[in-house]
Simulated assay, not measured.
Amino acid sequence: MTRLATLLVLADGRLPAGGHAHSGGLEAAVTSGRLRDLTGLAAFLRGRLAGTGRVAAAFAAAACAAPAPPDARIGALEEGMDARTPSPALRRASRAQGRALLRAGRAIWPVQPAIRDSHHPVALGVVAAAAGLSPAEAAVAAAYGTVSGPASAAVRLLGLDPYAVHSLLADLADACDRTAALAAAGADDPVDLLPADSTPLLEIGAEVHASWEVRLFAS
């Protein structure tokens, strides 16, 4: 049985897990002049879903399918995310979001206390499992989160029409579902065989962004 209401709670941007403080690389792209309008945002979101979103969905699904922590599988997933995140700034941001999500998850569902510091996709899978969700549902939440966060940030950074921005998110729904389905199909694969898509420009932008004294978003 699909627990749609529970999935909505987990994927809701208003969940007090700190997601509102992160732009997913959008602030760096806007400030550099690479992203100026709705057309640019559409391309950014599709690219982010195909790269970061694919990796996040796969690791969330794998963490959801793993035995309850502490478990060697979770440790391997953490190492796998480190290997796929060369930017120190993005590693810090991912772990900050993971800690915040685990804190929120423990306040809502019976999340085991074994994990305290985790990459966000891994934390998402752990929390999803505690909420009774499947790996496929964890993957949907991860895929959607990789585009919904930057989309919300775009309204603040560029002053875009929120109706038009949400229309972009609706257009990406099928792509999110496909990404999640592929991720869930490989949830039991060895960590080395999980997606390792590279997003060099996001990595470089994250390092530049982290050096700014004044910024609206943490990442």
Rank of each mutant, 00 (worst) to 15 (best):
M1D: 12
T2F: 12
T2M: 14
A5Y: 13
L8E: 15
G18E: 04
A21W: 14
S23P: 11
A29T: 12
L35S: 07
L35Y: 09
D37W: 04
L38W: 05
T39K: 00
L41V: 01
L45C: 09
R48A: 08
G51N: 01
A57C: 01
A58D: 07
A66E: 05
P67V: 09
A68D: 12
D71Q: 06
R73Q: 07
R73L: 11
A76F: 10
G80D: 04
M81K: 09
T85G: 05
A96Q: 12
G98H: 05
R99L: 07
L102V: 01
Q112Y: 11
A114I: 08
I115E: 01
R116D: 15
H119N: 05
L124R: 03
L124S: 01
G125I: 08
G125Q: 05
A130M: 04
A131S: 06
L133A: 06
L133F: 02
A138S: 10
A139T: 02
A142K: 00
A151N: 08
S152D: 14
A153H: 04
R156I: 03
L157H: 00
L158Q: 03
D161C: 00
D161S: 03
V165D: 01
H166F: 09
L168N: 03
C176K: 07
D177H: 14
L182T: 08
A185F: 13
D192H: 13
D192G: 13
P200T: 07
L202W: 04
I204L: 14
V208G: 10
E213P: 13
V214L: 14
V214H: 15
S219K: 11
